[in-house]
């Protein structure tokens, strides 16, 4: 992925949340950096978290180690996007 791909990463995170959690396109389009995720979205249970992380890995071509997964990275849409961008863009 290109170094200027942070918007692309954000779009990918949005699409993954839509596809894995079964949210509408309108709903994920409203996600902002401070939109809370884990604990705020009833669709995002621990099984769904595994699906989100694995789908992000597949689409971005990254590997997420288990010890990198914590409440903080899933706290908000911005936190998850920052984490994914750091992984994908280096």
């Amino acid at each position: 992925m290109q170094p200027d791909g942070s918007l692309q990463v954000e779009d990918t995170v949005r699409a993954v949340l839509r596809d894995v959690l079964g949210l509408s396109a309108d709903r994920v389009a409203e996600f902002r950096a401070d939109t809370p995720l884990f604990g705020a979205l009833p669709e995002l249970d621990s099984l769904a978290v595994a699906g989100v992380l694995t789908e992000l890995e597949d689409r971005l071509g990254i590997l997420i180690e288990d010890d990198e997964v914590d409440g903080e990275m899933l706290e908000s849409f911005g936190a998850l996007t920052r984490f994914a961008a750091a992984k994908a863009l280096g």
Binding site: R18, D19, V20, E43, A48, G51, T54, D58, R59, G61
Partner: peptide, 20 residues
Amino acid sequence: SDPRPADHQVPGAPLWRRSD
């Protein structure tokens, strides 16, 4: 949405990821 090699790609969401 899947970047791995394929003979053909189709638009759609991965139903196998949905818990419902």
